[in-house]
């Protein structure tokens, strides 16, 4: 699984961090998403997918 983020679209909602804290973080200054793991291991795939679905800004793209 590969994860891409669109910081341009991110609204800093933090839903991704709540759903998959090992994969996503937020910048301190403006809350924009920071991708910690571009290729999350198998055990984090479900949480990563859930984060992509929850993101209200559609800023997370997951390629399988």
């Amino acid at each position: 699984m590969k994860v891409r983020i669109d910081v341009d679209a991110c609204v800093g909602a933090g839903q991704c961090v709540l759903a998959a804290p090992d994969v996503f973080d937020q910048r301190d200054e403006d809350g924009m998403v920071v991708l910690l793991l571009e290729e999350p291991p198998a055990e984090l795939e479900a949480a990563t997918e859930h984060a992509a679905l929850l993101c209200p800004a559609l800023a997370i793209v997951v390629d399988r």
């Binding site: 800093g12 933090g14 961090v17 709540l18 937020q26 301190d28 809350g31």
Partner: peptide
């Protein structure tokens, strides 16, 4: 307001 990280913690 312009404090996303702290807000997430306070959720």
């Amino acid at each position: 307001w312009n404090m996303a990280r702290q807000l997430r913690q306070d959720r």
